[in-house]
């Protein structure tokens, strides 16, 4: 938090320190979604440029500093993931490959359990799986349909109900 305040004031050393402390997590988020080193680095770079410019926008309503930064990185990675260029380069083949356990997939398996995971455990299997695939792999409704073979209506309702249930668990 101190580092972010200093960053907001234009302190480059503080920004460097912030990068040192947080880039591992930010990079993991980008790599998990994009499954490609070059694109994950691009997303990471753009995310930090944004953090530098927007540091003074942060306030505690937006969660912890790390979570706020993760949000920035994740939106950036999602933008790249949804870009026509990325799709043309054969997203589908990536997906099939990653079913066979790429190192990036393992990232997801090795993550720390946090409070939201306890709530995730209370969801039905379908709800949890769809939310995890959408969150960690960035799949859209249509891609989830293709990936799981379940009808679109079912996917949408799993996600909607799952998120409602998560909210009741997280904000009792």
């Amino acid at each position: 938090m101190k580092l972010l305040c200093a960053t907001a004031e234009g302190d480059r050393r503080a920004f460097n320190e912030l990068y040192r402390l947080t880039s591992g997590k930010m990079y993991a988020v980008c790599l998990q979604l994009l499954q490609r080193k070059d694109l994950a680095e691009e997303a990471l770079q753009e995310a930090y440029v944004r953090v530098w410019h927007n540091a003074c926008d942060y306030h505690s309503d937006k969660g912890s500093v790390v979570v706020w930064m993760v949000s920035i990185a994740r939106y950036r990675a999602l933008d790249i993931l949804r870009s026509a260029a990325y799709r043309r380069e054969g997203r589908e083949s990536d997906l099939e490959q990653s079913d066979e356990h790429t190192p990036e997939d393992a990232l997801f398996d090795q993550r720390d359990r946090v409070r939201i995971d306890e709530c995730m455990d209370t969801l039905e299997d379908g709800q949890r799986q769809m939310i995890q695939l959408a969150y960690f792999r960035g799949l859209t409704h249509a891609e989830l349909t293709e990936h799981t073979g379940s009808p679109l209506g079912t996917i949408k309702s799993w996600i909607r109900r799952g998120l409602q249930k998560l909210k009741r668990c997280l904000e009792p």
Partner: peptide, 20 residues
């Protein structure tokens, strides 16, 4: 963002290339 991105924040750290 606070709720869901706690999931991302819990991923194990990966060291990006120094060139970044």
């Amino acid at each position: 963002e606070k709720h869901l991105n706690a999931l991302g924040a819990a991923l194990p750290e990966q060291t990006p290339d120094a060139s970044v």
